[in-house]
Nucleic acid binder design. Structure first.
Lengths: 105, 105
DNA sequence: TAAAATAACTTACATAAAGTAACTAACTGA
DNA sequence: TCAGTTAGTTACTTTATGTAAGTTATTTTA
């Protein structure tokens, strides 16, 4: 058990290797939005989405804001820490455009 | 179910959101190496490592080469497609240095 | 020559994570 | 009052991952 890898890098990797985390942040790059919007846009179940949003909020990556309108509006948005993740997602986007086929079986 | 996201990006995201995939590619960035070396360096179990290496080989990201020496040497290395993934991992590295704490409990 | 070691896996079993679908609570408009 | 919307939660099933031991081939050591 070497574990020669940096614990911070290791933690970042565990973060994005949680299913849906990347797509949630990517979706929030297009601006603050509601729970049901994220759910519909990326096709995640409500159960997992609420778990992930809680995790991301605890990590300081996502901010949850309640607007006491009628009906109540709850908006999720990226913090600076979350916005700083954009280059990662852009690189993944670029890589996927260059190296993955448009058609998959 | 909008599913407005690009299927190629979606596929790339499913790839890196598989546990260990990122760390395996990262580890291979330091050069071709053997199974047991990757296993020790990142702390993944042999079972999952062999699954992941097969997946990565099928995706054309990793190359497996057998050197019929004594004892036989099997080396895993990155293809061009795999090497092209480097910027993603460097960005994650940078992000983790800037935004994650050195100490975690 | 037999026993122990190493590399590269695989198998069996246990636990954790994710998916599915239905349910809740608060409100609103018809 | 009934159906609809938002933001979730709960119960249950399926899939993924972890752990530890076993396998095959070869090689080194006693």
């Amino acid at each position: 058990m070497d574990k020669s890898i940096c614990p911070r890098f290791d933690k970042a990797m565990s973060l994005i290797s949680q299913r849906w985390i990347g797509l949630i942040i990517y979706q929030l790059l297009s601006g603050p939005q509601r729970f049901c919007n994220i759910e519909a846009a990326i096709g995640v179940s409500g159960k997992v989405l609420s778990e992930r949003l809680k995790d991301l909020e605890n990590e300081g990556i996502v901010k949850r804001e309640i607007y006491p309108e009628t009906p109540v509006r709850i908006e999720y948005s990226l913090t600076d820490k979350g916005l700083a993740f954009e280059p990662v997602l852009r690189d993944i986007e670029n890589w996927s455009q260059s190296w993955l086929e448009a058609e998959s079986q």
